[in-house]
Amino acid sequence: MSCEERKKQKIMRVKIVTGHYGTGKTEFSVSLAMKMAAEGKKVALADLDIVNVYFRSRERADLLEQAGIHVISSSLGHQSTLDLPAISAEIRGPIHDTTTEVILDVGGDMAGTNALVNFKKDVEESGYELLYVINSHRPETSTLEGALKHLDGIEMVSGLKVSGLVVNSHFLRDTTAQDILEGYALAQRVKEERGIPIRYISGIPSALADLPKDLEGEQVEVGMYMREDWM
């Protein structure tokens, strides 16, 4: 696919994953990175989460690096226990490297989006997709108003425009196609309001398998990478 074609389809090399906290941004980011790496792409995953120190993608650095994914987090390394807002400037490398697919896993809510502002110029130069994760099972984003409120807040803080929606409604391992369809219905209403297309649908494989075939958006199998087996 040529660069022009990619732009037309709004498929960009740099993908920024945002959303209300707890919607599943990190699980989606890690799953998408693993999917793209499996497709033979050169992938870099940057963990921009400086809001919360639990369940960040850097915790899975070993697994991701084994899959050939370049993991970038704090300038002080992946030490998961550091409660410091130190983001590595190393992120700029892959953003400007036209051969690398980049996923920026941004922290939750408007507060988490602040970390993105540092890299606004870079992503505007490289071109980007700003993805907004929707999980209708989260009380704060279960309604259209709630989903729009967080979407608008993230656009306001980042100064960037959301270009695609990610449907990620789930109940962990108990997720059914019905759960995903509820999220899909909410995403459609967001699309009607803001004209933003549904870019991805993510879920556990068993739930995705039961979905109707004509849905909008690329499907991403969630690997439950962030969930320990005993959870």
């Binding site: 906290y21 707890g22 999980n135 099972h137 989260r138 009380p139 279960s142 789930h170 109940f171």
Partner: peptide, 8 residues
Amino acid sequence: KVLMKGNE
């Protein structure tokens, strides 16, 4: 049923 984080 809703999906929540422990603290909230």
